[in-house]
Write a protein that binds this DNA or RNA. Structure first.
Length: 455
RNA sequence: GAGGUUGUAGCUCAGUUGGUUAGAGCGCCGGAUUGUGGUUCCGGAGGUCGCGGGUUCGAGACCCGUCUUCCUCCCCA
C-alpha cells in the first residue's frame, strides 16, 4: 500500500465525466458574464508574497500557501528572525512567492499595473483555481475554482443591480430550483456600530452578529460580552435580532434604528435603491433578501455585501461578493471603486450533484463507434469516419478486431449513441448496419445515406 | 491553528475477548454465445489490513508516532 500514489489533502482528480460537468457550469457562468459585458482576463497562479499578505486579515495570511525559495535564494533565510522566534518574518524570508488565495486581490494588482491600458469602468471576469491551506471539510477544498466578475472604476449602484441579476441568471440557467441572494451593506453595519457607541469595534460586532443563524441570539450576546462590548451597546444591538417581514418592512425598521447615524442611513439608502430596482425588475428563481446579520469576513468590503445560499442542501454559501471602495488603494491607486461577485464552482458542482441536476447528456459520450471487422472493412470505415467528421459528427474506429461482444461492451461503457457494423456482407452490398445503442434498434443503410440517418 | 473521528480488494463495507490460509456485495477478466452491449448463469484474478515503530510465543485487532478521511470550532467558496 505504501507504494500507492496519492494526492495532497484537499485536492481532487477529475475524471472525464467530472470535467464535462465542471465545464457545463463554467460555460453557463461565462455565457451570462458575457451577456452583461464582462471580458475575460487571467493572472498567474502565484504572486509575490507581498501582493497577497496582509490583504485577508490575520486568519487569511495563515491560509496562504507559500512557495519555498529555491537555489541560491535559500540563503536569504532570516535566521535571526528564527532565533527571535519571529516565525512570520522568518517565513517571509523563506518564501518570496505565494499561491493566489482568491481572484480579487490579484485583480486589484492587475488593475493598478495596467491602469493605462484599461478603460474604466473596467468589467472583467476570471475563472481560475485558487488555493487555501485550510482544513478540508465538506464543500471545502485546498484547491478550488472561483468564477469572478468585477467592475472597477465606477461607484454606480447600477452594477449592484446587474450583479444580482447575474446571480439569478446563472443559477437559474443551472436549473437550481431555489436559492436566496442575501444582501446587506457594510455602511449599515458601520451605522450599527456607531449608534451602539462602539464604532471602532465594528469587526468584532459584525463577526458576532454574522453567527446569529448558527448560534442564536444568546450565543451572539455571549460572544459580544466575551469581546467586552458594553452592555449598553448590546442592548442597542438586540433589536436587530427581531428584524422580520418583507425587505421593505425591514428597511423601515432599520431607518428608525439608525436614524442618528449618517453612514448607517447612507447604507440604507443604497440598499433600498437596489432592492426597489430588483423588486420592479423581478428575478427568475432567486429570492433577494435583506439580511442585516450578513457580514462576511473580508475586511475590504465597504458597500453592498452579497452571499448566495442554495435551498434544500447542506452547504455553505455558493457565491459571495460585495463593493470595495479602496481595494486598489492598497496598491497605490486611490479613488477607484469596485464591486464584484464570485461563484464557487466546486460547491455549485457538489450541490448540482447532490440534487441530481446535471442534464443527462452533459457527460458527452462518443456519438459513433465503428466496429472493427478486419483490414479490408476498416479501410472503408476510415473513409466513412472522415465523412462523418466533416459533417461534425464525432466518431472512432475500434482499434483491433476483438470479439464483437467486447467491442459492443466498450461502446456501451463509453456511452456511445450509435455503433456501425461494417463486415464482409455489408462491404459487398455497400451498406452498414447502424445500431442505436439506446433503443437497440438496427437498421441497414447505404453508405450514401449514413450521415442522414445519424442524429 | 484547537478538539474529535476514520483508514481492510478498483468501490462500498464485514472481520467476536489478540490465535491456522483475512471475507462479502458490486466492479473487473474469462466462458455459456465463432456477427451484437446494457439482463441471466458458471468460473477466475485481485489484499505487506494507510505508513513507521512498539508490546506479545503470536497483531487487521492493543500502545506510540505519522499521514489521510470526515466532523465541530476558527475562517470561508
Amino acid at each position: 500500500m505504501s507504494q500507492k500514489p496519492a494526492i495532497p489533502k484537499g485536492t481532487r482528480d477529475f475524471l472525464p465525466s467530472d470535467v464535462f460537468k465542471r465545464n457545463y457550469i463554467f460555460d453557463k457562468i461565462k455565457s451570462v458574464f458575457k451577456l452583461y459585458g464582462f471580458a475575460p482576463i487571467e493572472t498567474p497562479s502565484f504572486e509575490l508574497s507581498g501582493t497577497l499578505l496582509g490583504k485577508y486579515g490575520e486568519e487569511g495570511d495563515r491560509l496562504i500557501f507559500r512557495i519555498l525559495n529555491s537555489g541560491e535564494k535559500m540563503k536569504k533565510a532570516d535566521v535571526q528572525a528564527l532565533q527571535e522566534e519571529n516565525l512570520p518574518r522568518f517565513a517571509n524570508s523563506l518564501a518570496e512567492k505565494a499561491l493566489r488565495y482568491d481572484l480579487t486581490v490579484p485583480f486589484a494588482r492587475f488593475v493598478v499595473q495596467h491602469q493605462n491600458e484599461l478603460s474604466f469602468p473596467f468589467k472583467r471576469y476570471q475563472i481560475q483555481p485558487v488555493w487555501r491551506a485550510d482544513r478540508p471539510q465538506h464543500g471545502r477544498y485546498q484547491e478550488f475554482y472561483q468564477c469572478d466578475a468585477d467592475v472597477v472604476g465606477s461607484d454606480s449602484l447600477l452594477y449592484e443591480i446587474e450583479l444580482v441579476q447575474i446571480f439569478d441568471a446563472v443559477l437559474t440557467k443551472l436549473n437550481l430550483p431555489g436559492f436566496t441572494i442575501k444582501i446587506n451593506n457594510r455602511k449599515i453595519l458601520s451605522g450599527i456600530a456607531e449608534m451602539s457607541g462602539e464604532s471602532d469595534r465594528i469587526v468584532d460586532i459584525t463577526v458576532a452578529i454574522d453567527k446569529l443563524d448558527k448560534i442564536g441570539e444568546e450565543g451572539v450576546i455571549n460572544e459580544l460580552r466575551n469581546k467586552s462590548i458594553s452592555e449598553i451597546a448590546i442592548e442597542k444591538i438586540k433589536p436587530l435580532f427581531q428584524l422580520q417581514g418583507t425587505n421593505a418592512e425591514r428597511i423601515q425598521l432599520m431607518k428608525i434604528l439608525l436614524k442618528e447615524s449618517e453612514i448607517g442611513m447612507k447604507g440604507i439608502e443604497e440598499l433600498e435603491f437596489v432592492l426597489n430596482a430588483i423588486h420592479n425588475l423581478g428575478l427568475e428563481r432567486g429570492e433577494l433578501e435583506f439580511d442585516v446579520t450578513l457580514a462576511r469576513g473580508l475586511n475590504y468590503y465597504t458597500g453592498a455585501i452579497f452571499e448566495v445560499k442554495a435551498h434544500d442542501v447542506k452547504m455553505g454559501s455558493i457565491c459571495g461578493g460585495g463593493r470595495y471602495d479602496d481595494l486598489t488603494g492598497l496598491f497605490g491607486l486611490k479613488g477607484l471603486s469596485g464591486v464584484g461577485i464570485s461563484f464557487g464552482a466546486d460547491r455549485i458542482y457538489d450541490v448540482l450533484n447532490e440534487l441530481n441536476l446535471f442534464p443527462a447528456d452533459v457527460t458527452g459520450g462518443l456519438s459513433v463507434l465503428f466496429v472493427n471487422f478486419g483490414e479490408k472493412e476498416v479501410t472503408k470505415c476510415l473513409e466513412l469516419a472522415a465523412e462523418l467528421r466533416k459533417s461534425g459528427i464525432d466518431c472512432e474506429i475500434y482499434p483491433s478486431t476483438a470479439k464483437l461482444q467486447k467491442q459492443m461492451k466498450y461502446a456501451n461503457d463509453r456511452g456511445v449513441k450509435y455503433t456501425i457494423l461494417l463486415g464482409e456482407n455489408e462491404l459487398a452490398s455497400q451498406t452498414v448496419i447502424l445500431k442505436d445503442m439506446i433503443s437497440g434498434i438496427q437498421t441497414q443503410v447505404s453508405f450514401t445515406d449514413l450521415i442522414g440517418n445519424i442524429k
